[in-house]
Amino acid sequence: MSYIPVSRRTIRRHRESERSTRRLVVALSAAAAVAWLLSVTLSAAVHADTLVHNLAVVLHVLFLVVAFGAIILVDWHGLLWLVGRRDLSEILRLDGAATPLIWGGLAGMLATGVFLNPHLSNPMTDVKLAAVLVLSLNGIMLIPLMRRLARLPSEASFEDLTAGQRTHLVLCMIISQACWWTAIIIGFINAES
């Protein structure tokens, strides 16, 4: 183990950075929960006519394609990094490019979901809505880890992470995929009924 001297100033900046990241995660989690709650509440109050409903369905699916497509791409490249087929710098760059698509698509789905006339008394709809909330919070919980990964050398591998970081990354990937697929499958099942 090598000793790398670190100044007090560097340590202080790191602590400030960690605190600002925690504050960001709390603020974004609260915002995501409020946006989700607002979407669900408004969807119970708004009863869209056929034209508005059909337009909302088309837009909802387009936003889904954008967000979930970006998630699949990021998770696939992340998996390739896990097995040593991609550099960390590629993953971070792709994640940075995909992040606006993911969050923009998710925001669009929450907005259009208001006009889908969901059956809120259906337990499957409740599961879908819970999955959407969990996947949103899960994405936010990745922020601290992604910031730590950004400080690693570009050639860092999955094995270079601590056991906690590896677990965090893999669990977030599994939770993300499980929630997205749950929401998508239930959404299509509900659309058929």
Rank of each mutant, 00 (worst) to 15 (best):
47 H>Y: 01
33 A>W: 05
54 N>H: 12
57 V>G: 02
52 V>I: 12
44 A>I: 01
48 A>S: 13
20 S>P: 00
13 R>E: 13
35 A>Y: 03
16 E>Y: 01
52 V>A: 11
35 A>S: 10
22 R>M: 11
46 V>S: 01
34 V>C: 03
32 A>Y: 05
11 I>P: 00
41 T>N: 06
30 A>C: 14
31 A>W: 00
19 R>W: 12
9 R>H: 12
18 E>D: 15
54 N>S: 13
59 L>N: 01
10 T>S: 12
53 H>E: 12
17 S>G: 14
12 R>A: 13
8 R>W: 05
53 H>K: 09
39 S>D: 03
11 I>W: 03
28 L>D: 09
32 A>S: 09
46 V>F: 04
11 I>Y: 04
12 R>D: 10
60 H>G: 04
11 I>A: 10
31 A>C: 02
41 T>L: 10
29 S>Y: 09
58 V>Y: 07
47 H>N: 08
48 A>F: 09
7 S>W: 01
14 H>F: 13
41 T>I: 00
6 V>A: 12
45 A>K: 06
56 A>Y: 06
16 E>H: 06
30 A>D: 08
40 V>A: 15
49 D>R: 00
21 T>Y: 08
46 V>Q: 00
12 R>Y: 05
51 L>V: 13
49 D>L: 00
20 S>W: 09
50 T>P: 00
15 R>M: 14
41 T>A: 13
11 I>C: 00
52 V>W: 11
56 A>V: 07
32 A>Q: 02
45 A>W: 08
46 V>P: 02
23 R>G: 10
51 L>W: 06
34 V>R: 05
44 A>T: 11
32 A>K: 01
60 H>D: 05
17 S>E: 15
51 L>F: 09
49 D>H: 03
24 L>N: 08
51 L>Q: 10
43 S>M: 06
11 I>H: 03
34 V>L: 11
36 W>D: 04
15 R>A: 15
59 L>S: 09
45 A>N: 00
42 L>F: 06
30 A>T: 15
55 L>F: 11
29 S>T: 13
18 E>Y: 07
40 V>M: 14
13 R>F: 10
56 A>F: 07
39 S>N: 04
9 R>P: 00
13 R>I: 03
37 L>H: 07
35 A>G: 04
33 A>D: 03
45 A>F: 03
44 A>D: 05
61 V>F: 11
56 A>M: 04
16 E>P: 00
38 L>T: 14
20 S>N: 14
11 I>E: 08
15 R>V: 14
7 S>M: 01
46 V>T: 02
31 A>F: 05
10 T>K: 09
42 L>M: 06
36 W>Y: 06
31 A>M: 06
27 A>D: 08
17 S>Q: 15
17 S>C: 07
15 R>P: 02
26 V>Y: 11
29 S>K: 08
27 A>M: 10
6 V>M: 14
21 T>I: 12
30 A>L: 15
35 A>Q: 02
42 L>W: 04
50 T>E: 14
13 R>D: 12
55 L>M: 13
12 R>N: 04
6 V>W: 04
60 H>Q: 07
33 A>F: 11
49 D>A: 01
